[in-house]
Each structure stands twice: as structure tokens, then as C-alpha cells.
Design a protein around this nucleic acid. Structure first.
Lengths: 157, 157
DNA sequence: CCTTGACCTTACCATCATGGGAAGCCTTAT
DNA sequence: ATAAGGCTTCCCATGATGGTAAGGTCAAGG
């Protein structure tokens, strides 16, 4: 199988297969005499593993650990489960942040009549700018404001 | 006010202020004789506007539109509201994707006993690799798989 | 046997918003 | 005068992905 066939069979683009190889996530593929990469079913299976892991939102760094556990026949399932639970936590954290953004936006949008007139509570809020509007939330440390979220979209695939 | 003071007053780092200037999001700041950037209260207010917009997850591209509307005294609040609702939609879309990842992960984690033994339904699932497990969901087109989500974290601030 | 088109190779650039660092100038306080 | 700390510009890195360009290869059909 050449890289294009492996890509089709695994759902990982040829581009990404080369990238994963270059970063050491997957071992260097064999080559034909003329330099084409060659893939066996085993390698395609590994690519599918990666693809599925990405679909579950695992960063490549974690996938490296998952692959190591996958290969290690004396692994402890607890180690795998911990990675999964960590991933769930991370997702939940980001979801919560986005939900709080959404709630603020919804509140503002509800207050905006959205007609031809220029008066707009949304702009008024943004213009006020500070961080401690939402006065009923005072004293409640919300921690971790990482997420910037909006425009990170690799695009289709 | 020099850039450091403007940064403290607005919650936008000096680094980002320079970046926003370089990309044209904000106008070029005035300079002292020796080349230091100078900021007025008006400009700090604009920076706070930007900061607040980022906190609501707007991408810089959209903030450009928001700023234009902010400055336009003959704007129509409907235009602002549309931006807000679009942003809500985007957030909801991403939240849904992450929730579906979470649900899959939770199901797998629940099935994993997480002890010292090597048998692990999580790895088994990843290893199976395909896309159409979850057989009760057949036929239900889920659309838009953009989100890769996991490790995009600018970090604190 | 040769052409054509579809594929492969590498190498480089872009994304998006952000941080890090270096090298050098300026300002302020001791 | 000197030291500390802030400012300037410039370059690089992030993460995962796509795009493009220049050139080699393979298979099918003339």
C-alpha cells in the first residue's frame, strides 16, 4: 500500500501521515526502491487508532501515550482509563467556559431589540469593558480562563 | 500613558497591543520623541472593548466588525445582534461536538474497570478504529466535524 | 516506445492568537 | 554615574492542518 491508499484506508490524510512520521508519532515507513512510502495493514491499523483518538479530541501528545499503552501487552487498564478521564475533564472544562460565554452573550442578545435603531446593550456592555459586570457572580472564583475558542477550525476532513 | 500602563489598565498585554496595532485592528499609537507609544483613555477603552470581546470568544476578525459598529453612530442594532447570535451558534456547535466526544469517552471509561489488568475496552475501541461503532446512531448525519479541540490553550493571562 | 495523467517526494509557507527571548535604547531613582 | 526596569524591534515557537511548487515515478493507452 502506498501513502494514498493508506490514507483512504485509515481516514488520515497523506499529509498528516507524513507529519506524524516526521514528529515520531509513528515509526518511519518502509520505502520502495524509488522512494515511495509503503504501508502494511498493521500500520494502517495504527493510523486508524490515531484517527479515532483525534476524533475523541485527544491531542497528539496524549495519543503517543495511548499508542504506547496499546502496544504494551502488560499495561494496566487503569492507566488507559486515567487518560480517558483526564480527556473528559479537559473537555468539560472547555465546555463550561464556552457555556459561560454563551450565557453572557445570550443575556446581551436578549436585551438587544435588534432593529434599525443604533442603541445596543451589547455594544454598551463591550464598551464598558471591565471584567466584573454580572454582579451576582461576585466572590465566585472561576479559575482557568484559557480558552479563546472562536476560530480554531482545521476544516472539514 | 505608555504601553505598560495601558496594558494594566485594559487587561491586554503589551505584546498583544503591539500585535493588534501591527494587524490594523487598532490605529497606530502616537509616539513620544524617543519612540515610546502613547495611549489616551479613549484608546484604553478600545483595548478594553477588545479584551471583553475576546473573553466572549469572538475571533479578532469579528472584533473588527464589532469595533466598526461601535464607532458608527448610525449603526443598526440588528447588525450587532446578528454578530452576537452567530457567535452563540458557533459556540453551541463546538459545545455539541465536545459533548459528543465526551459521551463516547464516558461510555468507554464506564466499560473499563481501570485496574491492574491489561484488558481495556477503551483501547479495544480505538484499535477497532472505524467510524461507525455506536450502532444505534446509524443513519443520523451529524455534519460538521471541525473541532479538534484538545490542546489549544494560550495559557492563563 | 512514448505520452499523459495521476500519484509520489521534499520543502516551504500560512493559519490564529499568543508567549518567549535577544539586543539595544530610554527613563527614573538612587 | 550607575543600575534597574521599561520600552523598542525582530525573530521564533506553539498545534494540527492545509496549500503550493518543483520535480520524480508509475501505469495505462496510443
Amino acid at each position: 500500500m502506498n501513502i494514498g491508499e493508506a490514507a483512504k484506508a485509515s481516514g488520515v490524510t497523506a499529509k498528516m501521515i507524513r507529519y506524524y512520521e516526521s514528529t515520531g508519532l509513528i515509526p518511519t515507513a518502509g520505502r520502495t526502491g524509488s522512494g515511495y512510502r509503503v504501508y502494511s495493514d498493521t500500520e494502517v491499523q495504527m493510523l486508524r487508532f490515531i484517527r479515532r483518538s483525534r476524533d475523541l479530541g485527544f491531542p497528539v501528545e496524549k495519543i503517543e501515550e495511548l499508542l504506547a499503552l496499546w502496544r504494551d501487552r502488560s499495561r494496566q487498564s487503569a492507566d488507559v482509563k486515567r487518560l480517558a478521564l483526564d480527556q473528559i475533564d479537559g473537555l468539560q472544562r472547555k465546555i463550561s467556559e464556552m457555556q459561560s460565554m454563551m450565557a453572557s452573550l445570550q443575556e446581551l442578545a436578549d436585551a438587544c431589540c435588534g432593529d434599525h435603531r443604533p442603541d445596543c446593550p451589547i455594544l454598551a456592555d463591550l464598551g464598558r469593558g471591565a471584567t466584573q459586570r454580572n454582579e451576582q457572580a461576585r466572590g465566585q472564583f472561576n479559575g482557568l480562563s484559557s480558552l479563546r475558542t472562536a476560530s480554531q477550525e482545521p476544516n472539514s476532513r
